[in-house]
């Protein structure tokens, strides 16, 4: 063991003289951290939020939740379910509108299919509805279609077209070149190449994304009623405004349960679509 100790001491001596690398300084991280912290402090201190009301918020919310559960009445259930069904219908039909509108646009926005000019124009066209929330579409459509679910459906359809179109275009750009080349080599025309080499590759992912967007649209359509565009939002808004907590609680529970159930079902279908049929 003394031999080993000697070598160890010699090694220690060697190490003491060794050069250590210097810790590099991460400017990027510093800048991001400072920007976030400073932005947060600035926003918190300047915003006109009446922070004094914050401490009472948990108690108030707790109080409201208590009233919602305490005054819960089964009699409100049929109404809540019917309104929620309307929300689901709005989300479903809106998603279908968006799917139909976005599908051709997605090919025009894909760099490996369309020319550069077409791509730039189509992408900008898709960017606009993507940035505008559904509710704003809805308020603009209500004077046209009147109060009711049709305005909400069209609002959801138009605003989802942007997101679905952009993501579908990205999926199309990610497809393999090989089959396109093979179709080309077999003498296929451009539409034929798209139909037989591109669409079979990208369809599962695009359909899965339609479903995913449907899940998101349910959340959107559940609140469209706040501005009168149909669905359970109207019931929620009115019962909360007029402090009918039992009804509000029932509507809230229905929204949460239906959303979670549809999320789970749609998620399972999406995974099955991506995986493909089991042989």
């Amino acid at each position: 063991m003394t031999g080993a100790q000697q070598t160890r001491r010699a090694a220690d001596e060697r190490l003491r003289r060794a050069v250590r690398p210097e810790k590099p300084f991460n400017w990027f991280r510093l800048v991001v951290t400072v920007a976030v912290v400073a932005g947060f402090l600035l926003a918190t201190s300047t915003v006109d939020a009446h922070w004094g009301r914050l401490p009472e918020a948990p108690a108030q919310l707790w109080n409201i939740l208590g009233l919602m559960i305490g005054e819960l009445a089964l009699a409100d259930l049929p109404d809540a379910l019917a309104s929620m069904w309307e929300s689901v219908a709005i989300a479903w039909l809106g998603t279908m509108i968006a799917a139909v509108l976005s599908f051709p646009l997605a090919f025009l926005a894909a760099r490996n299919i369309a020319g550069p000019g077409t791509v730039v124009v189509t992408r900008q066209l898709l960017n606009i509805p993507r940035a505008i929330p559904e509710i704003i579409f809805a308020v603009a459509l209500i004077p046209i279609f009147g109060l009711g679910p049709l305005a909400g459906t069209v609002a959801i359809g138009l605003s989802s077209t942007g997101t679905i179109g952009k993501l579908s275009a990205e999926i199309i750009e990610g497809c393999e070149r090989g089959p396109i080349e093979a179709a080309d080599a077999a003498g296929a025309s451009k539409p034929q190449r798209v139909r037989w080499a591109v669409i079979p590759q990208v369809m599962p992912e695009i359909v899965a994304f339609w479903l995913y967007r449907f899940e998101i649209n349910i959340r959107a359509s559940a609140v469209l009623g706040v501005v009168g565009a149909g669905g359970i939002g109207t019931m929620l808004q009115q019962s909360i405004e007029f402090r009918q907590w039992g009804q509000a609680g029932m509507a809230l529970i229905v929204v949460i349960v239906v959303t979670i159930v549809i999320d789970a079902a749609s998620g399972a279908i999406r995974r099955r679509i991506i995986r493909g049929p089991s042989s």
Partner: peptide, 28 residues
Amino acid sequence: NIIRAVPDLLWALLFVAAVGVGVLPGIL
């Protein structure tokens, strides 16, 4: 899952009822 199932505008409705109108319910 429950937190995620409640849409943003619905949270706002609840907090407007709890603390009154203004920026605070929006932030919450």
